[in-house]
Simulated assay, not measured.
Amino acid sequence: MRVRGTKGVRRGLAAAVLAGAAAVTLSTAPAQAGGVGANATWDCEGKTGIDNDGRERTTIVCFKGPVGNRSAVSATFYAKGEHLDVTDNFGNGRATVAKLYVRGSGTATFTTGGYNLSYSENKYVELTVCTSSSVNAVCGTEAGGST
Rank of each mutant, 00 (worst) to 15 (best):
Y78M: 03
P30S: 08
G93Q: 09
A38C: 00
N39S: 15
S132I: 00
C62H: 05
T112W: 01
G37D: 15
T48P: 01
G8I: 08
A38S: 14
G8H: 11
V24E: 06
A33Q: 09
A19K: 13
V67I: 15
A22H: 13
A23C: 06
K47N: 11
K123C: 04
S27H: 13
G113A: 02
E82C: 12
G81C: 09
V24T: 14
E82D: 12
G114Q: 12
S120C: 05
T76I: 12
G145M: 08
Q32K: 03
T107K: 10
G145K: 06
T96N: 02
N116A: 04
G54W: 06
G68T: 13
T41P: 12
L127P: 07
D53C: 02
Y124V: 12
A72P: 11
G93M: 09
T109K: 13
D88H: 03
E45S: 09
A33W: 00
I60F: 06
N122Q: 14
A72I: 06
R70I: 00
G93I: 12
T147I: 01
E82F: 03
R70A: 00
D85W: 12
C44H: 01
G140P: 04
V24F: 00
M1F: 14
E142H: 07
T87E: 05
D88E: 09
A38M: 02
I50Q: 10
A38F: 00
R103H: 07
V97R: 10
C139H: 09
H83L: 11
G5M: 01
D43N: 14
A16P: 03
Y115K: 12
G93R: 12
G46C: 00
Y78Q: 08
R70E: 14
A29S: 09
Q32T: 08
V61H: 04
Y101G: 10
S118D: 14
L117I: 07
S120T: 10
T48D: 11
V135L: 11
R70N: 04
P66C: 03
T131R: 01
N116E: 05
G113Q: 01
F110I: 12
N116V: 08
V61N: 13
A19W: 13
R55G: 00
G113I: 03
K99N: 06
A15K: 15
C44W: 00
T25F: 11
R70F: 06
R10A: 14
T131D: 14
A98D: 03
R2M: 04
R94F: 06
I50A: 01
K64H: 04
T41Y: 08
S71N: 15
G104A: 01
V36P: 15
N39E: 15
G140Q: 02
L13Q: 14
G37S: 11
E45H: 04
A23S: 15
S132P: 07
C62K: 05
T109L: 07
L117F: 10
